[in-house]
Amino acid sequence: MALNTQPNIADPDEFYAELIRAHDGLSDAESAAFNARLVLLLANHVGDRATLTEALAAARKP
């Protein structure tokens, strides 16, 4: 399963607003911890090891 980098979220503005809202009231450290948990949840959902490696590379060097 290759990493899908084409648009894949139905209502991107609504999603983005929800993502930012999820950080409301968090300190910077709490935000970072939140993001770490979120990455792990999504990574588990993806599951495929090769895809995860590809995503890590894409995030390192956008």
Partner: peptide, 27 residues
């Protein structure tokens, strides 16, 4: 308005340069 939203905003812009998926998020 916050550190977290500033970081996500710039992450979207960084990714949008190379990946189509991030472009619909640029607002």
């Amino acid at each position: 308005k916050s550190t977290a939203s500033h970081m996500f905003r710039n992450a979207v812009l960084d990714l949008a340069e190379h990946h189509a998926f991030a472009r619909p998020l640029v607002n």
